[in-house]
């Protein structure tokens, strides 16, 4: 089996090089994610961060997890995000003007505070134990090692997670699935209904829009379905100049009922 196991303790130079190249990029991508105007850019930057993390996992002897991170987290979860973004708000861009006054500076202070606190506290931590490294735990292979823990120690949590999966599927269906209330009439039924109707006037189907329009001049207002002129169909300038013609002569006269 391919041995990615790197030196334990102070990590060896190849890992250090990789870390110091990728980690700043990951942080920059994360920061870009929270500042990007377009949501799709945020999603792509997050996908980049996740791939970087997958590389870190592989470098730290978590081979299975690294691959699962790429396949499941980046490949499934982030793609789901992108799909939903496309459905919901691909052209929605957050205006970066903040409504709540004082939230921007307050959150910057909080960011610096929390980040500084965490980093400084962790910096003082000497971790207590030496780095043991995973070469012993991975001695049978990383996948086998995880399998052993997963199916013996954590088997109960593993089974309960299935409840979570069912809930997710059920919930998505509840919120998104509309069951058909009335069955739609099929083409054959519609055709029969047309010919069995009271008059054959519409046997060939109703005329499409525009069939009965009598003009297309720019100074005559269009007619609404009930026969009244539409006020918004004429440029306001023409209306103000008094150049609007009446649409009366163009309206259809009422026909008397035909004798069959």
């Amino acid at each position: 089996m391919i041995n990615f196991a790197l030196e334990v303790g102070p990590t060896a130079t190849p890992e250090a090089v990789m870390f110091w190249i990728l980690a700043p990029i990951a942080v920059a991508a994360a920061a870009g994610m929270i500042f990007a105007k377009k949501a799709v850019h945020s999603a792509l930057l997050l996908a980049w961060v996740m791939i970087t993390l997958a590389i870190f996992y592989i470098a730290q002897d978590a081979l299975f997890l690294g691959i699962v991170q790429i396949v499941v987290y980046t490949g499934a979860v982030m793609m789901l995000f992108l799909f939903i973004l496309m459905l919901v708000g691909v052209d929605s861009s957050d205006s970066l003007v903040e409504n709540i006054r004082g939230l921007r500076p307050a959150s910057i202070v909080a960011a610096v505070g929390l980040g500084g606190l965490l980093v400084s506290l962790i910096g003082r931590a000497t971790l207590g134990t030496d780095v043991v490294g995973l070469s012993a735990a991975n001695s049978g292979g990383n996948v086998q090692g995880i399998a052993e823990e997963l199916f013996t120690k954590y088997v109960w949590a593993f089974e309960v997670v299935s409840a979570l999966l069912i809930t997710a599927a059920l919930g998505a269906m509840v919120l998104a699935h509309s069951s058909v209330i009335k069955s739609r009439t099929a083409q054959r039924d519609q055709s029969i209904a047309r010919f069995r109707g009271a008059s054959l006037a519409n046997a060939a189907g109703l005329p499409s829009s525009g069939v009965f329009s009598r003009h297309n001049a720019v100074d005559v207002p269009a007619l609404l379905p009930d026969g009244t002129p539409a006020p918004t169909s004429i440029s306001k300038t023409l209306e103000a100049r008094g150049d609007m013609l009446s649409s009366k002569p163009f309206e259809l006269e009422e026909k008397e009922a035909e004798e069959d």
Partner: peptide
């Protein structure tokens, strides 16, 4: 990696499932 046991990786695995 520091402690030399795989519990952390298993926890990570569960986190991924829950996050999905």
């Amino acid at each position: 990696r520091i402690h030399g046991n795989l519990s952390g990786q298993v926890a990570s695995f569960f986190t991924m499932v829950v996050a999905a």
